[in-house]
């Protein structure tokens, strides 16, 4: 029941996280956790504390007026608080939270973590939240026999690479009188890619758009006729060019070729603007290249990614872009 909001000084938060780190050891550094006695923490919530205060007030009133009914109500409240602690623990016990994968994002969008939540026994009111970010917490009313998937947004909107902090699995069941919680910390890094800036930089644009055969490598393919070669027995009869046979009485085979575009090279030094702008433009180029499925390499101030194509390469490039300047993280 926080009515007056005040901001806690940062050193308290630091101390808190240091204590947590020391206490939790590595119990929660897993990709999947099933809550049980040594990983569940139970304490009365703020409401629970207020509830106990009212119970004590009732007790004092009952004693002072020697009123059995008020006294009874006070005892009832005390018993219920203890029941709530037991209920809260039992509710969370057996809950399994597993980290599935991360959805990385372009700044200023926040990356998301995808979780799967299962429970042996029905489990109510579960909240997954990232430290200091209750706003985006992910709330699940009830987990029954089926597994539930949920997405948790992380509070990272700036370009970068972030180690995931311990994520709180909490429940206020029952009546919000207790806080039952645990942590899970997958050993995983999430990236926030630079925000995309459209660029018309000619040098790179040309490279992407240039599909002429000038200076490009030819691959065997079926787009363009290239030459006639002698038929070999293993080639099969269907490939023989009967037109040429009719003219020349030679068994010839048509050879075709693809024009594979030239490898694009995206260079940090070739785009203009400050470093964030440059990264944004590179990001745009990399994505465009990925969509057009061409080979590209990426040259960054202290890193060179060799030419390649495909999804993994694309991801590697984007991750490299997000890490520029903060390699320490």
């Amino acid at each position: 029941m926080r009515i007056y909001k005040f901001k806690r000084p940062t050193f308290i938060l630091d101390i808190k996280s240091a204590i947590l780190k020391a206490l939790l050891k590595n119990k929660h550094k897993k990709n999947s956790i099933t809550l049980k006695h040594n990983t569940i923490y139970v304490l009365p919530s703020t409401l629970g504390v207020y509830f106990s205060v009212v119970a004590s007030l009732n007790f004092v009133m009952g004693i002072n007026y020697q009123n059995n009914l008020i006294l009874f109500m006070a005892y009832l409240m005390f018993v219920i608080i203890i029941f709530a602690l037991l209920l809260g623990y039992s509710n969370a016990r057996g809950l399994t939270v597993s980290f599935k994968y991360a959805i990385e994002s372009f700044s200023p969008q926040a990356p998301q973590l995808v979780w799967q939540i299962e429970a042996a026994d029905p489990c109510q009111s579960i909240t997954l939240s990232y430290p200091n970010d209750l706003k985006n917490a992910c709330y699940i009313t009830r987990v029954k026999n089926e597994a539930i998937k949920c997405q948790l947004s992380l509070p990272y909107t700036k370009r970068g690479c972030y180690q995931i902090k311990p994520i709180k699995i909490a429940s206020n069941y029952p009546f919000g009188l207790v806080n039952v919680w645990s942590y899970i910390q997958p050993n995983k890094v999430v990236y926030v890619y630079p925000s995309i800036i459209k660029t018309t930089n000619q040098k790179h644009q040309n490279l992407v758009a240039n599909n002429t055969d000038e200076g490009t490598e030819k691959h065997k393919g079926d787009d363009e006729f290239e030459s006639l070669i002698t038929h070999l027995p293993e080639m099969g009869l269907q490939r023989i060019s009967w037109k040429h046979y009719a003219k020349t009485q030679q068994l010839l085979v048509k050879q075709f070729s693809d024009f594979k575009s030239a490898d694009a090279q995206f260079d940090f030094n070739l785009v203009t603007g400050d470093s964030e702008q440059r990264l944004g433009q590179l990001c745009f180029l990399v994505c465009q290249a990925f969509e057009s499925d061409i080979n590209y390499s990426l040259k960054l101030p202290n890193k060179l990614i060799a030419s390649n194509s495909g999804k993994l390469h694309h991801q590697r490039c984007l991750q490299a872009l997000s890490q520029v300047g903060n390699d320490n993280e």
Binding site: V54, A55, L57, N58, Y65, I70, M73, A74, M77
Partner: peptide, 13 residues
């Protein structure tokens, strides 16, 4: 709601 627990007991006075 917490205060109501107190108000309810007050009736018994």
């Amino acid at each position: 709601i917490t205060l109501t627990f107190f108000s309810l007991s007050a009736v018994y006075l």
